[in-house]
Amino acid sequence: MIETRNLTKKFSKLVAVDHISFNVKRGEIFGLLGPNGAGKTTTIRMLSTLTRPTEGTATVGDYDIVKDDNEVRKLIGLVSEKIIMYDRLTAKENLWFFGRLYDISKEVLNKRIDELLELVQLGNWKDIQVGTFSSGMRQRMNVIRALLNMPEVLLLDEPTLGLDPQSSVEVREFIKKINRENKTTIILTTHMMVEADMLCDRIGIIDHGKIAALDTPTNLKKLVSGADTTILELEIANLTTNMVSLIQSLKCVSSVSQDNSTHIKVHASGDDAFDTIIDAIRAEKGKIASVKNLEPTLEDVFLHITGHEVRDKADQKIPMRRHRRFMPVRRRVR
């Protein structure tokens, strides 16, 4: 359904998206996972014809995103990071405006607006200005706006950004429902591992504009656990730096990270890793308050693949061109 070949976007010297190639099958939910500034939004913007690629090509439903941009636009719905709604217009007026831009006939549009508003439980709010809505309601509006033209492909850029946990769950459920019922192909970007894990059939891990790994969530996790990795979260009441460095020095341990004064997270490999670590702590008279044997999360996968944690670069948004003067281009930290 969607195919990209060496898709590249440069902003002056900065390469935001660096020769990305991937395929998305019809009816699939495909996730682009990566920290802020990894190039997710730029990829989505190129696929939705809002930005022209510097190099490479991409097709959506066999239409080229540059040459046949208008055909692509008919196929897609975009849920942008920003809320595409006019605050002074009511819910219905907003949907009416965008719906009419797709040449949907008035009767059909009227019916569809009511259905969509019902679908996200906003039926009672249809004559109220969007400016008064809560962020959860606005985001639901933002999603159904993209569904007005019954798109075959739905592009979602950080659909749960800034939402409380409950609203996030609602939006995720809704995305799954659309995919299940309408067979809509979905590409979504997120920086949240949990979200990608829950929603996506396949995930592309994107970092510094490049796809670092691409597979199903299960297979990605196997990349880590396949090397029979044990991940332990330990709470030790009398934790000392000495103890930490001792654990670090164990043969089976690959990394130790300290969360706070009593919690540590240990990555280790080998069959007897668990026993070895516990024994070592006991030998040092460590009082183990709790032990958790963790399933590898995508967080761990990301760490494993890219060699750095997600939050390393979390505050480094790729400067857009218009911000160039106000934000110095930072050197990349490797």
Binding site: N70, R73, I76, L78, S80, E81, K82, L101, Y102, R145
Partner: peptide
Amino acid sequence: EVGTLDGMMVAPI
């Protein structure tokens, strides 16, 4: 700036 321009730009108009 608000982002609503994108809403018009992704429509086939």
